[in-house]
Design a protein around this nucleic acid. Sequence first.
DNA 1: TATGAATGAGATTTCATTCAT
DNA 2: TATGAATGAAATCTCATTCAT
Lengths: 206, 206, 206, 206
Amino acid sequence: MARTRYRRRKQDRPAELTEAAMLEFSSNGYDATPVEAVAKRAGVSKGLLYLYFKTKEDLFKAVVRSFVAPRVDALVTRIDDTDLGVEEFLRGPFLETARELPRSRVRHLVRLMIAEGPKHPDLTRWYWENVLSKALDALQRLLRRGVQSGEIAPSAIEKFPQLLLSPVMFSVVWMLIMQPHHKLDTDAFIGAHVDLVLSAIKKGET
Amino acid sequence: MARTRYRRRKQDRPAELTEAAMLEFSSNGYDATPVEAVAKRAGVSKGLLYLYFKTKEDLFKAVVRSFVAPRVDALVTRIDDTDLGVEEFLRGPFLETARELPRSRVRHLVRLMIAEGPKHPDLTRWYWENVLSKALDALQRLLRRGVQSGEIAPSAIEKFPQLLLSPVMFSVVWMLIMQPHHKLDTDAFIGAHVDLVLSAIKKGET
Amino acid sequence: MARTRYRRRKQDRPAELTEAAMLEFSSNGYDATPVEAVAKRAGVSKGLLYLYFKTKEDLFKAVVRSFVAPRVDALVTRIDDTDLGVEEFLRGPFLETARELPRSRVRHLVRLMIAEGPKHPDLTRWYWENVLSKALDALQRLLRRGVQSGEIAPSAIEKFPQLLLSPVMFSVVWMLIMQPHHKLDTDAFIGAHVDLVLSAIKKGET
Amino acid sequence: MARTRYRRRKQDRPAELTEAAMLEFSSNGYDATPVEAVAKRAGVSKGLLYLYFKTKEDLFKAVVRSFVAPRVDALVTRIDDTDLGVEEFLRGPFLETARELPRSRVRHLVRLMIAEGPKHPDLTRWYWENVLSKALDALQRLLRRGVQSGEIAPSAIEKFPQLLLSPVMFSVVWMLIMQPHHKLDTDAFIGAHVDLVLSAIKKGET
DNA sequence: TATGAATGAGATTTCATTCAT
DNA sequence: TATGAATGAAATCTCATTCAT
């Protein structure tokens, strides 16, 4: 008589709902996704969804939070725990993560952030505080270690670690918008950028 | 006395309407902008708008077309008519345009393209064919001229002229989403990127 | 230099417009036909149409009047001028007209009368006075002549000359609604009805 | 206190709505009836109507189906279950039904079918398959039984059972369009038609 | 908790009609 | 006469949100 249909409990619901919302928002965009579509995909009623999220906007925020944060934490930890050199790190873990992003589901969240961001300043603030600034700080720490160890020369990139992210974001957007019309090999593209950066900042290239 | 109800400006209407639409879409996004808001801003009735644009989507496309195309044409012409060297061009006209973009109104169109692009494949195709591919081709021609003249060394950047655009797009997005929370000096940022690129590809840097 | 485009003059315009309206109303129905479609088909502007007909309803009435009246007048004249017997007339001119109607353009007007009639009581009144009652009276006169001459026996049909029209209207409606799904040979159908009537009222059939 | 906003009558709603729609469509016609008028008459909101019927057209179809089908089924059953002769049946049950129709509410549906039919071919197909063809087949079976039993002579009416329906439809249309201007005693009219038919097909009238 | 019937505001679009030109 | 730009009311349909059950 085990009614597995009802196995799912209170505690799993929010995650199930954000998962469902992530999928729906990703394919249709925020405005074009009816709340009911999310509920249906999660296998619950509209009413129940409103029990967990006061408004549609709330749900959207929860989606962004639940999907982005874990990834960044992982990257930050990786940077701070590593004893790899700058080049090793950039060509290794960084490149791996950077190349995966434009293909992963998270790319849709990036689009949602860009599309909806201006209407949700508290969300972008949260995003800055909990995601972007952490990632940029960690990258900065990495680069400074490299300078101190003499591996790389001091350069503007320490001030603008964003320089390491811009081709990643570009690739994400390209995948979402331009890929159907003109293919870009984002792996090679991001690789070329890292080459470029390294060739510019590495010392002893004489 | 009572001002005439009619203004009868067949000539100017489309431009007035796309201008108004540009402003409304920019601040609220496409979906969240009622057609009526556009009409009101243009000082006409809803009905008139539909005399010039068959659907809201049509209006959106007209906006993108009318605002983006002229700028790119200008840039392309500039590249092809110049006899500046690569460095001179990148530090001169290119930097000028690249730095202006994130502050100009067009930045909002970039956001709209990212937000709405996936739902309007014909629009993104048009954008690719009439805007992006032209700009990338022109940049490629510039770089090849530099290689042939011996000014710069062959490098991956010839294959990926996008490398010159990614920090511009990054700046645009930053301005739209993150600037309220954390200022980025996009002029310096884009300048640093150009430095980086040039230091990597210039010859005789022994 | 003969500018034939402007040959058409004031006097032809109403007829041109009702002709165009007839065609449009026939294929799309009254409500679903924009006034502009009529104007376009007539090759004039909307504004001009409103110069001749105060409202769309006016135009509709003019259509009905201009298309139906001439036909009925012809039939009535034919009945009153004939010296054919009842059978000869019914099997001859009547059958000819009755069989043509379901195939002619006028059938669409019948549909319009049925569809729009209840909303235009003055139109149906006009139709009764100028069309239907005249036709029924003429048929009645024909039948009475037959009784007086001894050709046919007195019967209820003198009181209800509509009995001669009902299969015609049935055929018209069938052509409009049912013919795509199930063919009815309206010629044979109407013929059978006339046979039936005649076999019932003819004398000396002992 | 404030009456509850909800009535929650899932079961009854569709019937309440088609009933309301029937009334509204009957008096104003399909195109001229706003969905809101139907909702208002049913005492619910516009939105609710769309919960039960995906489009206005859907609602219209439901109206036709729910009102017409039951009557026809009843007639067909009556024909097939009877052991009355042809004359008895035509003068009895048939006449009764035929005479009621022009006065019943269903007459409005006939008008709607004629008015809207051409725009809804699937509806007229359904009508043919589920209503008309059944009725005509049943009448045909009745007449054949009469021929076989020797009650009536073979005649074209077996091929065209529509001959029995045409005065009924004529009466319906008359009631809707002409009755205000000129009264027709439809009972007598339909009776006369049946007389006519019977006197033509009955045997042994020598 | 959980449902989903019900609401009502609002969005897009159409079109009869007017009137400056 | 003749045009067609312009209006504005209305129509269909969607959907976030509520709340009786």
